[in-house]
Amino acid sequence: MSYPINKDNDTWKAELPAEKFHVLRQAGTERPWSGELLEEKRPGVFHCGACGADLFSSDTKFESGSGWPSFWDAVNPDAVELKEDRGLGMVRTEVLCAQCGSHLGHLFDDAYGTPTGQRYCMNSLALEFSPQDS
């Protein structure tokens, strides 16, 4: 698929730290409970760690107990792309940044008690956080 922000892997590799490149461009996963944004509770916006696109609002972040930052919805339906992922011997829904195609995490339908019932399970390394001005 073609994205509004389209760079080759060599360019991404030069721009991103190795651990972010692994997650964002090679669909890696950080260890659970290790991400610096897991406990982020301030009001603000979570952006793509590769291109800076707005992805999630702190208003939709919740504690899922999964070990990764979780959100019950994206900032808008066009912010993310959903793609079937048949890796690891199971069928999951991969979440990609709609602006640059970077891997963010996976979407699950197990967030009972949230308005959507969905859990966007994201890697902290795939996101940047901008606190809301007070």
Rank of each mutant, 00 (worst) to 15 (best):
residue 82 L to K: 13
residue 82 L to R: 15
residue 33 W to P: 02
residue 120 Y to S: 08
residue 77 P to A: 10
residue 86 R to K: 14
residue 48 C to F: 08
residue 75 V to N: 08
residue 55 L to I: 02
residue 18 A to F: 02
residue 29 T to M: 10
residue 25 R to A: 08
residue 19 E to N: 15
residue 7 K to H: 15
residue 46 F to Y: 15
residue 128 E to Q: 14
residue 117 G to K: 09
residue 61 K to M: 05
residue 68 W to E: 05
residue 46 F to P: 02
residue 50 A to F: 03
residue 108 F to H: 06
residue 59 D to C: 07
residue 107 L to R: 08
residue 39 E to S: 14
residue 62 F to S: 12
residue 134 S to V: 10
residue 14 A to L: 07
residue 44 G to C: 04
residue 76 N to C: 10
residue 109 D to V: 01
residue 64 S to H: 06
residue 48 C to Y: 02
residue 8 D to W: 07
residue 104 L to A: 07
residue 94 E to P: 08
residue 10 D to A: 15
residue 83 K to R: 15
residue 27 A to K: 14
residue 100 C to E: 09
residue 50 A to M: 04
residue 54 D to F: 04
residue 1 M to Q: 07
residue 26 Q to N: 13
residue 77 P to E: 12
residue 82 L to C: 06
residue 63 E to D: 15
residue 45 V to G: 05
residue 27 A to Q: 10
residue 118 Q to P: 02
residue 100 C to I: 03
residue 38 L to F: 01
residue 64 S to C: 05
residue 1 M to E: 12
residue 74 A to S: 15
residue 39 E to F: 02
residue 49 G to A: 05
residue 68 W to F: 09
residue 95 V to R: 03
residue 94 E to M: 11
residue 126 A to G: 11
residue 17 P to Q: 11
residue 121 C to A: 03
residue 49 G to M: 07
residue 20 K to P: 00
residue 84 E to R: 14
residue 13 K to E: 11
residue 19 E to Y: 03
residue 39 E to R: 09
residue 20 K to H: 12
residue 45 V to E: 13
residue 110 D to S: 06
residue 131 P to W: 07
residue 111 A to Q: 00
residue 123 N to D: 14
residue 57 S to K: 13
residue 82 L to E: 12
residue 41 K to R: 03
residue 117 G to W: 02
residue 58 S to R: 11
residue 105 G to F: 02
residue 31 R to K: 15
residue 115 P to I: 02
residue 95 V to N: 05
residue 36 E to D: 11
residue 19 E to F: 09
residue 73 D to C: 13
residue 119 R to F: 01
residue 37 L to S: 10
residue 73 D to E: 15
residue 30 E to L: 13
residue 53 A to E: 14
residue 38 L to G: 12
residue 16 L to Y: 10
residue 90 M to Q: 12
residue 82 L to A: 03
residue 78 D to N: 15
residue 14 A to S: 13
residue 126 A to M: 12
residue 24 L to I: 11
residue 55 L to G: 02
residue 123 N to L: 10
residue 57 S to L: 15
residue 20 K to T: 07
residue 86 R to L: 11
residue 15 E to W: 04
residue 130 S to R: 14
residue 125 L to V: 13
residue 39 E to I: 01
residue 114 T to D: 01
residue 133 D to G: 14
residue 70 S to N: 05
residue 32 P to N: 14
residue 56 F to K: 06
residue 8 D to V: 11
residue 16 L to M: 08
residue 59 D to E: 15
residue 20 K to W: 01
residue 24 L to Q: 08
residue 38 L to P: 01
residue 122 M to E: 09
residue 50 A to N: 01
residue 124 S to T: 10
residue 104 L to R: 07
residue 7 K to V: 09
